[in-house]
Write a protein that binds this DNA or RNA. Structure first.
Lengths: 347, 347
DNA sequence: TTCTTTTTTGAAACCGGTTTCAATCATGGT
DNA sequence: ACCATGATTGAAACCGGTTTCAAAAAAGAA
């Protein structure tokens, strides 16, 4: 049984290829009888048009690429990327898009692959995730290339050097740091520390929110109470240990995974959460609930982030003009046990 | 600046399209001068052939699909899928393949998408991951369809009803259960329990290995010491709790994630690992090292599993005859603190 | 009724490659 | 010097769709 082509369908239906194509694409000016006839044949034979041929002719592949740099560790020590991917596939599927996944295991591999991706015209557009740990735009050659070649793309995560011509979507990390810290202030904590992350937009912004909350309340940032991790559990553990001697009574940790490490450090120092030190995390990914005590944390809907990125990308692909939007998604505080809010209320 | 095509290159090099195509594809009988000339033009212009056109003409897209069912939770509560994906992308990249990711969020979505994937001829082949929790081949319509339509595919994870015409690759789970249990026996434990998982090949096999080890040593399986979870941390916690009253002195937990739950249950019962109850896990994914005490566990290289799946698939795609191989990868025990081996040795 | 105007349809060009076929050219054998 | 053989190349067909263009048919206007 040879493969069905548009020609076979045309023959079976007694019309031309062109007409079948028109029916397939919902072209308006087709007589009802012909349309019915063609549709009947299609249904009967189970014909589905060849995507590749379609792409070639229409210059649209309906494939978008998801680029994840630094695949080795980061991708699965942190549930962030899986959650993101999940959101992206969901919306992609709904829009009839196929998602091509690019995880790079070395800088060089990334360069080469990206270059060919961009040139071979296989993809309609790209979603770029920024590295959570370090993202130095000056060393990142993709983006200028994409802009120059006019390839539709969307960044997930604010670039460290935002500008109008690069579209991105991110969680409002300043807000996140702010509401977390503000919550701790409102609960009456005095020495509020933070474990954040430096040299990357998310960490910087969360720290900015922390600073803002403190200053708004007339406090100063005590650099003894500020430590920098790299989003790993280990770094959370390590940095919390350096913080403890300075006697914080609360800490805002810029990721749940690091917060898990912090919890361990606090435990090992024979201190109790939240009685001795209150903890607020950021992300609200599954580990937040698995922790003991359960983490009060800032919820960012990572899946929604991914989904909206796809929608943005689609808009860019479909629009003739340059729409390059910058979007920040709000986050909100989820109160659980680790911040002591419930205990305080009880008192 | 209009896009470069093979015709422009041909013109610039003063040869025909056919010749350029031959140079591009490393066809042998080309005179050195012509080859050089064409290559020079290609390098100079930075020309890269259009993938889509290539696919259409050669009936090879160099795109393979990775299908992950049940995207919702499982995908990122367990580092298994991310690790697998990582291994798959690595080998794909090395072979110039693009990976298309399909995560299904509902049964229906899966049906529809698969159907069109298969029919539209976009993909050269498929890698199917089996659901870790339940995988009922009788309700799974993909595989028979794929076999019938002669689409190259490889299963990751033994199907629950293996047969010669379906190629798969899996960890040797029987072996894993065996060496874990055997290790506990050799350390002198008497009442060795297990938390495994039922109604799925991996769980069943690991349990079979457990059984085999015990029986080989003239012991019987005590069903009071057998519990069934679903690979979540919560289920490990819950099932371990039901096991503790039966006074096990050791337990083989069929996944690290469940083992983490088990550790928590043991802790809460004021028992100490490994002094009161020794624990051996399975998988050796990152959480095994993050646990306290660190988990003795069976190492299966999930990344290698993914990588080899790609290689198998490539072989199938490239070979004319039907090679449908079934591969089991060996696993080995990684001894850390939770089994008490070191303590025992010290004694 | 006749002359636009709009629908409806098919033929053919096109998207950018690969591959078949045949022609030309160089080489080796006798 | 002559013929068989193999190397090298280009023209043209082809992959399976979409889209342009023009013609035929139907509808509306005068």
């Amino acid at each position: 049984m040879k493969r069905l082509t548009i020609s076979s369908i045309a023959e079976l239906a007694g019309v031309s290829k062109a007409t079948v194509s028109r029916v397939l694409n919902g072209y308006p000016h087709i007589s009802p009888e012909v349309r019915e006839q063609v549709e009947a044949v299609i249904k009967e034979t189970g014909y589905q048009p060849n995507q590749v041929a379609r792409s070639l002719a229409s210059d649209r592949s309906n494939i978008i690429g998801l680029v994840i740099p630094k695949g080795t560790e980061a991708v699965f020590l942190d549930p962030y990327f899986p959650a993101l991917t999940n959101g992206i596939t969901q919306v992609s599927n709904n829009n009839g898009l196929t998602l091509a996944l690019f995880i790079f295991h070395s800088e060089q591999e990334g360069q080469d692959t990206i270059k060919s991706i961009v040139n071979t015209g296989l993809l309609d557009g790209l979603i770029l995730t920024t590295d959570r740990v370090t993202f130095d735009r000056t060393t990142d050659p993709f983006i200028p290339q994409l802009v120059e070649r006019n390839i539709p793309f969307v960044l997930i995560g604010r670039p460290d050097n935002p500008s109008d011509d690069i579209p991105y979507i991110d969680t409002n990390n300043v807000l996140g740091g702010y509401i977390a810290t503000r919550h701790l202030i409102d609960l009456g904590y005095e020495r509020i520390a933070t474990v954040t992350s430096r040299y990357n937009p998310a960490g910087d912004d969360r720290f900015a929110g922390y600073t803002q909350a403190l200053e708004e309340c007339g406090r100063e940032v005590d650099m003894n109470l500020v430590a920098y991790g790299d989003y790993t559990l280990e770094s959370g553990y390590r940095e919390m240990k350096t913080l403890i001697p300075h006697k914080p009574d609360a800490v805002f940790v810029a990721s749940d995974t690091m917060a898990l490490g912090a919890l361990r450090a606090i435990n090992e120092a024979n201190l109790v959460v939240p009685d001795d030190i209150a903890v607020v995390g950021h992300d609200d990914l599954p580990p937040a609930v698995q922790a003991t005590p359960q983490l009060t944390t800032v919820r960012q809907s990572v899946e929604k982030l991914g989904g909206q990125a796809v929608e943005m990308l689609l808009e860019i692909i479909n629009s003739k003009e340059d729409i390059k939007r910058q979007v920040l998604l709000p986050s909100k505080l989820v109160i659980r046990a680790s911040c002591g809010a419930k205990r305080k209320k009880a008192t």
